[in-house]
Design a protein around this nucleic acid. Structure first.
Lengths: 114, 114
DNA sequence: CAGAATCCTCAACGATACTG
DNA sequence: CAGTATCGTTGAGGATTCTG
């Protein structure tokens, strides 16, 4: 995290992890795929309320490259594309739950005085 | 995370946790305080390489309000102000380590194909 | 159905200078 | 020493429209 540990910030595994899940729509996407296992593009979009095509398709493309998400395309008319989490993506969930548990504890104390 | 779980995104404990640690300088600050227990303002600034006064003081103020950081001011000349993590701040670390462990596993596989 | 293209906005962050 | 004040920049994300 600092110069004694890593030459560059991007080398820190924690910072790196946050780049994978930290942007605005990553968690909602991961969460929807975790709960539903497999979703088509427009199903996923319905689960992630408020996201635009622009951002969803871009996020999915990145997450596929990063090994978080699997994309399966079926050559049919009309087109069918299904998304699901990779094994690595699923292995992320326990860490998220740990963080969520901490966050839940914080909500009570922080909400009132911020 | 979605409408079935929370009416608003901010109600999700995980999203909430990320607002506390997700911005650019939060982790470096938390990490420096975790390793050194207590630091004066300028010491902290030296540990968090590249941060400006503007961002550091602003971040510390927010983190204090959020219950992550304790600020102790001593009425001396020259002024002395010491920062350290709160108990809640320290309790965050195991979750971060879990996430870092996952991130470390990802780095190897992702780095090459992104 | 599953996106891509284009343009735009805004908040986080950066740089520099100043102060009790 | 420990911050503020001011201004400038930038990039993630939003809105809208279009397409194989």
């Amino acid at each position: 995290m600092n110069q004694s540990a890593y030459k560059r910030k991007e080398d820190c595994p924690l910072t790196f992890a946050l780049t994978l899940i930290g942007s605005k729509w990553r968690l909602p996407i991961i969460w929807a795929l975790w709960k539903n296992k497999t979703l088509r593009y427009n199903e996923l979009k319905r689960h992630v309320e408020g996201i635009t095509n622009m951002v969803l398709s871009q996020s999915l493309k990145e997450m596929e490259n990063q090994g978080l998400v699997v994309r399966r395309q079926y050559m049919e008319i009309p087109p069918r594309v299904e998304y699901s989490l990779t094994k690595a993506g699923e292995e992320l969930v326990p860490s998220l739950e740990s963080l969520a548990k901490w966050g839940k504890g914080m909500q009570a104390t922080v909400k009132s005085d911020v």
